[in-house]
Design a protein around this nucleic acid. Structure first.
Lengths: 195, 195
DNA sequence: ACAGATATTAAGACTTGGTGCTAAAATCAG
DNA sequence: CTGATTTTAGCACCAAGTCTTAATATCTGT
C-alpha cells in the first residue's frame, strides 16, 4: 500500500504546484508533511523542475503567449493565402478562451480570427471599417479546431468586401462579412493620439 | 565626462535587459565590457533587481496579464450596470493592442469590449448569437480611453437586442448591434465537444 | 515473525547567481 | 598634483537547489 501513498502524495504535489507554482521544496515539504528529500525525490520522479526553472519557464512561456495573443497580427495559423482573393486559417480553442460559467468560447475569439484573416487577405496597412451580418450559429467549446475561410467577393477602389466563414468539423459555426479599407502608407505614421 | 560614460552604460544596460531580461550579471558584464561589480553597482543605482527576481516578477506579471486578457469575462472595467437594461464600461488602449505596422488598434479589442459588455447586461450564462451593423468609424491609437455604452433596445422572450456605442473623447468610434440569447442553465453543463 | 524490497529521511559536498562589505586601483577634473 | 569619483577585486554569506551515499522506516510475502 505504500505505493499508493506515494502516488497520492505526488498527485497532491502536482495540484499544489498548479495552484501556486512558486512554492519552494521546503514549503511543499511542510504542507505535505514529509521531508524535503521526499519532495525532491517526488519531483525527480515526476520530472518536475526546481522552483527557479519553473519560474523561468513560466516567464518565457507566458511572455510568448502574451505576444502571440496580443501583439501578433494573425490570430490563428495561416494555412493558405491568395493575396487579394482568399485565405484560410486555423485556430485551436484552448480552455482559457471559454467562459468560466458556461464553458462556451467567448465570441470575440472567433471574431478575432475572422477579422485578422480578412485583414491578412488585404495586404496593406489596413483599417477595418465596417461589418455586417456577423452570425454565431453554434456554441463552441474548448478543444474545437476552427477553420476559417475568407473570400473577397467584391472590390471597389480601396474597399474590399470579404466573407469569412468558420467551420468546426465541417459544420459552419460562424460567418461574417467585413468591409476593409486599405489605407495609403503615409497617413498612418502619425500614430500619436487617436484622431 | 565619466558621469556620462556611466550614464550611457546604464542606458545600454536597460536596453539589453529590455531585449532579453534573462541575462545574468556575468553575461551583461561581457557584453558591456566592464566587470561584474560595475554591473552590480549599475543595477543597484537603477534599482534593477537580480535575474531571479526579474524572472519571478515577469512570470507573475505575465500570468496575471494572461488571465486578465483571456480568462476574464469582462474586457474593460465595468463602470455602471443596470441588469437587463444598460451598462457602461471603460477600456484603455495599451500599446500591445495596436498593429505593429500601423499603430492602429486591432478591431477585435473594441469588438471584445462591446461584446462582453453586451453579455454582462444580459445576466445569464449566455451565448451570443447574431450581430448586425458593426461599424468602425475612426481608427484608434494607443493611449485612447474608450467608453462603451450598451442599451437593450428590445427583448423578445430569450432574445435581447442590444446596441453598443464606443466613444473616445466624446467622439463615436464604433457601434454594434448584438442579438444575445440567454440560455437556460441546464443545457450548458455538457461542455465536452462542441455541438 | 523475519528477510528482502521499497520508501523515507538524513547528511555532506558542490553549484548558480547573486548580496553586502571593505579595500585597492584607475580615471578624471580643477 | 590632489581629491573626488568610478571601477575592480576579494571575501564571506545566502537561497534553493543538485548529486551522492548512507542510514532508518515501512511494507509485503511467506
Amino acid at each position: 500500500m505504500n505505493i499508493s501513498k506515494k502516488q497520492i502524495r505526488q498527485q497532491r504535489l502536482l495540484k499544489e504546484l498548479e495552484k501556486n507554482p512558486f512554492l519552494t521544496d521546503e514549503q511543499l515539504a511542510q504542507t505535505l508533511k514529509v521531508s524535503i528529500q521526499t519532495i525532491r525525490l517526488d519531483r525527480l520522479g515526476k520530472g518536475i523542475p526546481e522552483l527557479r526553472e519553473r519560474t523561468r519557464q513560466m516567464a518565457e512561456n507566458a511572455q510568448n503567449k502574451l505576444q502571440a495573443i496580443s501583439s501578433k497580427d494573425i490570430v490563428g495559423d495561416l494555412l493558405d493565402l491568395e493575396l487579394g482573393k482568399s485565405g484560410i486559417s486555423m485556430m485551436n480553442v484552448t480552455p482559457d478562451m471559454v467562459m468560466a460559467k458556461t464553458g462556451i468560447a467567448r465570441g470575440h475569439f472567433m471574431f478575432a480570427q475572422a477579422n485578422t484573416l480578412a485583414l491578412a487577405v488585404v495586404d496593406a496597412p489596413a483599417a477595418l471599417t465596417g461589418v455586417g451580418n456577423v452570425k454565431y450559429k453554434v456554441p463552441i467549446y474548448a478543444g474545437a479546431n476552427l477553420i476559417a475561410k475568407a473570400e473577397v467577393i467584391r472590390k471597389e477602389d480601396k474597399k474590399y468586401f470579404i466573407w469569412v466563414k468558420i467551420r468546426n468539423n465541417s459544420q459552419e459555426v460562424f460567418r461574417a462579412k467585413f468591409i476593409v479599407v486599405s489605407l495609403p502608407n503615409e497617413r498612418i505614421v502619425l500614430h500619436e493620439d487617436s484622431c
